[in-house]
């Protein structure tokens, strides 16, 4: 229960301070000091344009891409109503933002960290990579994209050991990120058993990379992307099936041990 005197607006009004295209994606920064201070890699925000407009009706979950002093950044693929609405916003536009929400990745452990992103699933991995490196973990980041327009997002991973694959071969290795992962794990040799995979992307990609990891004895944490309404555990709308039954991606995830997911 909340401590007395902590009552405050649930959603904070946050202004867009920066919005720029990153290839096919868009990087949007909000001024949000408290959220920036409390955010952990793999957590997300619920974001909706302030005001009475009914379209989009509900906030959208967006993973935290990075945090820099009092800024919280999201990287979005403007394909649906909510993401398009945010991508079209100008500097100074106000959004209602709730967060940081969800469990985030578990950063404990000390073996080599393999990060795998599929498409816009790369978004939460930049902050994750930095935090893991700050903890002295050896980080290798594998990013798979459809084509060059998406792969430009790899530029956001400055100072990180990044390997890119594209489905059309326009950047990096041609193929899927799961194929990059096989090669990467093989390169670790016997050290692979201490390695850990952190992945975010579409379900099919998460299934493929966690299966590849499992074959090599590498355990995986995966961040799932589901439709949400409340973002706070109330509506039961965002569930994923796990070995313990349905679990809410918003309040019990979005990061799950791949071994627990039934897919």
């Amino acid at each position: 229960m909340g401590a007395p005197g902590r009552a405050e607006a649930a959603y904070s009004a946050c202004r867009v301070i920066e919005s720029r295209p990153v290839g096919a994606y868009r990087l949007v920064s909000f001024i949000a000091r408290e959220m920036a201070a409390g955010a952990r890699p793999g957590q997300f925000l619920m974001v909706r344009r302030s005001g009475p407009a009914l379209d989009p009706l509900l906030p959208r979950p967006m993973s935290i891409h990075d945090v820099e002093s009092d800024l919280v950044k999201v990287l979005i693929d403007p394909v649906g109503k909510g993401t398009l609405n945010l991508a079209a916003a100008g500097v100074g536009d106000q959004f209602n933002v709730l967060g940081p929400l969800g469990n985030g990745f578990n950063l404990e452990g000390d073996g080599p960290a393999l990060l795998a992103g599929g498409g816009i699933g790369a978004a939460p991995l930049a902050y994750l990579a930095r935090q893991l490196m700050d903890r002295g973990r050896e980080v290798t980041c594998l990013l798979g994209f459809r084509s060059r327009a998406q792969a430009i997002a790899a530029e956001l991973f400055r100072g990180v050991d990044v390997h890119v694959s594209t489905e059309d071969g326009s950047v990096g290795r041609q193929g899927l990120v799961s194929e990059l992962l096989s090669g990467c794990i093989a390169g670790l040799g016997p050290g692979a058993r201490q390695a850990e995979l952190f992945a975010c992307g579409p379900d099919a990609m998460l299934r493929a990379v966690s299966a590849t990891a499992l074959e090599c004895g590498v355990r995986s944490q995966v961040s799932v992307d589901t439709h949400m309404a409340c973002g706070v555990g109330a509506c039961q709308g965002c569930v994923v099936e796990t070995v313990q039954g349905y679990r809410r991606a918003c309040s019990e995830g979005p990061v799950f041990a791949a071994a627990d997911l039934k897919w």
Binding site: G2, R6, A7, L101, V232, A234
Partner: peptide
């Protein structure tokens, strides 16, 4: 019913919903 879960929301919303 089903659209507001006091026991879940209190902590996340950083508000003392039980009292207010």
């Amino acid at each position: 019913s089903g659209t507001f879960d006091l026991l879940e929301a209190d902590e996340v919303l950083r508000a003392d919903l039980m009292a207010e």
